[in-house]
Simulated assay, not measured.
Amino acid sequence: MKVCMIITDGFEEIEAIGTFAILRRGSVDVDVYSLLDKDATGRFGITCTNLKPFSQIKEEDYEALILPGGPEYVAIEASTKVQNLIKSFSKKDKYMCAICAGPTILGRAGYLKNKNYTCFTSMNEDFGGTYIDKYVVTDGKIITGRSAAATIDFGFAILKELMGEKAEKETKEEIYY
């Protein structure tokens, strides 16, 4: 199982790195792409290197897309190429996972219509779905997380959907969750 994550400068470190770590512990292959085809520095100064260039992403290689939050969401949302990727994932009924500010990208593009979701509470708008005040909400193939504090639960929700309850349970036991 392979998933892709898209980041750029201003990404929320805990949401990106924490989700990555949970999924890798659960044997999910995670490729992290840089929107700008270069290293990306998070909002608190951690720089991620050796990222894959977004200009070379191949949607057909992945079963899930992950959008961490942080101030980066503005640049991610403004990218026509990211919007096209999201559209392709939706049309092919693949998983779309977003946390904190990330779900607003899906919401403004219409993918949360008639869906249950969560996001950073103060960023909730009328996305045409039902906002749920929980750390993580899964509705079909859309998995949303509320905030940085929800990162571990978000990672486990994705892991459970992609690899099953056994992988989720074993990974939780491994980290004494």
Results as ranks from 00 to 15, higher is better:
residue 26 G to E: 11
residue 26 G to H: 11
residue 27 S to E: 13
residue 31 D to R: 07
residue 32 V to I: 15
residue 34 S to G: 12
residue 35 L to D: 01
residue 36 L to Y: 12
residue 37 D to K: 05
residue 38 K to D: 15
residue 38 K to F: 07
residue 38 K to G: 14
residue 40 A to T: 07
residue 40 A to Y: 01
residue 40 A to P: 07
residue 41 T to E: 11
residue 42 G to H: 06
residue 43 R to T: 12
residue 44 F to L: 13
residue 44 F to N: 14
residue 45 G to L: 14
residue 47 T to D: 08
residue 49 T to G: 06
residue 49 T to W: 03
residue 50 N to L: 00
residue 52 K to S: 11
residue 53 P to T: 07
residue 53 P to V: 06
residue 54 F to H: 09
residue 55 S to M: 04
residue 55 S to C: 05
residue 56 Q to P: 05
residue 57 I to Q: 05
residue 57 I to G: 04
residue 58 K to A: 09
residue 60 E to S: 13
residue 61 D to Q: 14
residue 62 Y to F: 11
residue 63 E to G: 15
residue 63 E to H: 14
residue 63 E to Q: 15
residue 63 E to C: 14
residue 64 A to P: 12
residue 66 I to S: 09
residue 67 L to T: 09
residue 69 G to S: 12
residue 70 G to R: 04
residue 71 P to L: 00
residue 72 E to H: 08
residue 72 E to I: 07
residue 75 A to W: 00
residue 76 I to Y: 00
residue 78 A to F: 01
residue 78 A to E: 01
residue 79 S to V: 00
residue 79 S to D: 02
residue 79 S to G: 03
residue 79 S to N: 03
residue 80 T to Q: 10
residue 81 K to I: 00
residue 82 V to A: 05
residue 83 Q to T: 06
residue 85 L to H: 12
residue 87 K to N: 15
residue 88 S to G: 06
residue 88 S to K: 10
residue 89 F to W: 10
residue 89 F to D: 06
residue 90 S to P: 06
residue 92 K to C: 02
residue 92 K to H: 10
residue 93 D to L: 13
residue 93 D to P: 10
residue 93 D to N: 14
residue 95 Y to T: 05
residue 99 I to Y: 08
residue 102 G to R: 05
residue 103 P to Q: 01
residue 104 T to L: 00
residue 105 I to A: 01
residue 105 I to N: 01
residue 106 L to K: 12
residue 106 L to M: 15
residue 107 G to D: 06
residue 111 Y to N: 08
residue 112 L to C: 02
residue 113 K to L: 04
residue 113 K to C: 05
residue 114 N to P: 07
residue 115 K to W: 03
residue 122 S to G: 02
residue 124 N to D: 12
residue 125 E to A: 09
residue 126 D to Q: 02
residue 130 T to K: 11
residue 131 Y to W: 05
residue 131 Y to R: 02
residue 132 I to M: 09
residue 133 D to K: 09
residue 134 K to M: 10
residue 134 K to P: 08
residue 137 V to A: 00
residue 137 V to T: 08
residue 139 D to E: 10
residue 139 D to Q: 11
residue 144 T to C: 14
residue 144 T to I: 13
residue 144 T to V: 14
residue 146 R to V: 01
